[in-house]
Simulated assay, not measured.
Amino acid sequence: MASSDSDESLESHGSEIGHQTNVFVRVREWFLVKGSRLYVATIISLAIFVLFLLLNELGIIAFVNDDSVTRLAGGMIAGTFSLVTLVVSINQLILSQEFVTADTAREQLTGVMEFRSDLSALAQVPASPASPTRFFELIVEAINDRATTLADAVDAESDGGEIIHQFTDRVEQSSEQINNTLEQTKFGTFEAVSAAVAYNGAWQLYAARHIQGRYDESLSEEASEALEELISLIELFITAREHFKTTYLQRELTRFSQLTIYCGVPAILSAMTIGFIYADFAGPTVHAVYLPYIISALIAVVASPLALLVSYILRTATVTRRTTSIGPMVPQKDPDSGPFDVSAGENQE
């Protein structure tokens, strides 16, 4: 097959930063990833409250049948206990990852120190930053610097020059976008991890490896060295992103477990209150006018642990799905997209 390097623009075809101009997309991103999980859970609980009131107004449901509501309250108590038990199991699973021997702890520390040392050498700094946000900023700055060096060292009219300049332009644009995002974040916030997730390092690594394999022999020594360092820096970025993503998700799930326990007790008490309201032989102890509002509110409180579960699972599942690529393997890409078209034995030709 003939290469289409000069015919197609070098696009990453991945999730990039700063391109979410559509209102629906911004709202979706806030709901799935960027928004506080407490706010999202609160919105879900309020939606449940409004839903039950609306169904009552439309005559679809009613709150006057003692037996039905009492059975519902019993089911909600059992369901809440089951959810809390599940959350405790998740918390135990997370804690089990923290129990390591001294040898394992030393190996982990050695690996982290070697990783930080590699970045310090490539970025030419005395020591890499401790803050995750500043750590990402340093890697991105180094990536942008190597991309600029590579572009300056390659003539656009030379063999592969056009595709290399397209590639470096794309890398520089992505670097500037993620830097703008990271500069507006604070230490410990999710935006830093979110920006790193959106950075399409897997595609850049794939493109850089392809360029190196096809044009390395025609590159100058300076360009070849810049390309090699660029590849190493992108690999470091992907490694750092996976490390910080894992650390953050562990903290996220731990926080979810804690909040679920906090909400579990009020949820069980609310379900019990619903049962007590209908426990009188004469019927509900609350006036019929206020009954729909009170029962709907209590049901919303009972559903709060489930709302928390939904809000946290939405974020963790979205982050995991968007980082499924392993190195230059990009499973979410269309097989026919992109400028690189290769066939077996091409280098021999």
Rank of each mutant, 00 (worst) to 15 (best):
S15C: 12
W203Q: 07
D66S: 06
E57A: 08
G264K: 11
N144I: 14
D336V: 06
S45T: 10
N22Q: 10
S194N: 14
P284R: 04
S6Q: 13
G188D: 03
T246Q: 03
P339N: 08
I277E: 14
F190N: 05
A303K: 04
F244E: 04
F81A: 12
Q177E: 01
T320Y: 00
L72R: 08
D145W: 05
A240T: 00
F244P: 02
R26C: 10
V286Q: 05
I178A: 03
E346G: 02
S96C: 08
V319L: 10
A127L: 04
A195N: 09
P292F: 03
L95Q: 15
F340S: 07
T273P: 02
E235F: 10
V193W: 09
F49M: 10
I261R: 14
G264Y: 11
A207P: 05
A303P: 02
R321E: 15
R146V: 11
D216P: 03
F99H: 06
F187M: 00
T254R: 12
Y293H: 07
V84F: 09
L119E: 04
A121M: 11
T246H: 04
P292D: 01
N347W: 04
Y215I: 08
Y290G: 03
V154R: 09
A226H: 13
S257Q: 08
T80S: 11
D103W: 11
R71E: 13
I94V: 12
A297D: 15
E217L: 13
Q348C: 05
L10E: 06
T323N: 01
V87A: 09
G74M: 13
A41L: 13
I295Q: 06
F256D: 00
A121N: 09
I238M: 12
F52A: 12
S89E: 14
P339K: 05
G160N: 09
Q332M: 06
V265R: 07
A207G: 02
E11D: 09
L83C: 05
E8H: 05
N179C: 10
L54I: 13
T80Y: 07
H210A: 13
A62L: 06
S68K: 07
V100R: 08
L138H: 09
N200M: 09
M329Y: 01
A127C: 05
E229S: 15
A223L: 15
A279G: 14
G14M: 07
I211Y: 03
I44G: 01
S82I: 12
E114R: 11
S96Y: 07
G161T: 10
L233N: 06
Q108Y: 04
N180D: 13
E114I: 12
H19G: 13
T324R: 03
L249R: 02
D103C: 08
L205N: 03
